[in-house]
Amino acid sequence: MTMWFTENHTKDVFFAFKAKQLFSTRSDFQQIDIYQTKDFGKVLVMDERIMLTEKDEKIYHEMIVHVPMAVHIDAEDVLIIGGGDGGALRELQRYPGIKSIDMVEIDSEVPEVAQRFLPEIAGDFQDARFTLMIADGLKYVRTTRKKYDLIIVDSTDPFGPGESLFTREFYGNCFDILRTDGLLVNQHESPYYRLDAREVQSTYEKTKMIFPIDKLFQAHIPTYPSGHWLFGFISKKYDPLEDLQDVRWSKLDIDTFYYNLALHRGSFALPNYVLELIGKK
């Protein structure tokens, strides 16, 4: 059955497309739906928010993985918080130097649905380097003894099951399990609409108090609210520009859809209104 899917971007603004529902389930944590669309391919929706579309998911996943990996190119132990769709996993699997990829996802149904309906997007869940843990992300970072080089926070929005991933306690405990040259990248919401901008601000306030290096970078993701999306590069030692390993990264010869080294540098150049939002202007 064809229908209109709409997502409210604010109380008065919405985004809609014609879609056919392929699957729908209510997990212990959230509503999960898969739609087929003409312009975006398959779409994964959670609690009525678009998580990814086949058409533009590469932008998001390449930026959240290659930006930190091109800096911390020797990273061996990587932790993904959330990310049950397996997109970030897929990009990480392109680095032969990575020894372990741990994923902590709160909702066991997300990886299941992704592997069933979005196999081209989801990375290889059978990879020997990969471990999936179904657990609360905050609890994991509080209790694990393992140390990491890179943490990727690939969360849903701050309302819902992802709420604790936007808190100071979460980032404080992440600091503890990162090696001395470790770094963290998070999806940082959109600066455009007022309520989302508030989240950008408050998350930035929290992380900058904990980590010495905290810079935002941006990408254009057409199906996310406003299309203007931010990520945080939050690091103990490496600077995203000064420590960019461009020569070594080029040698890896990773074929990308969106990411390249010039874009890496450019993505840290922020519009004035965003600089103002985070008090950097």
Binding site: L138, K139, R142, S164, T167, F170, G172
Partner: peptide, 10 residues
Amino acid sequence: IERLLGALSD
């Protein structure tokens, strides 16, 4: 509860 525990540990 995890938030409280996380905060105390932080």
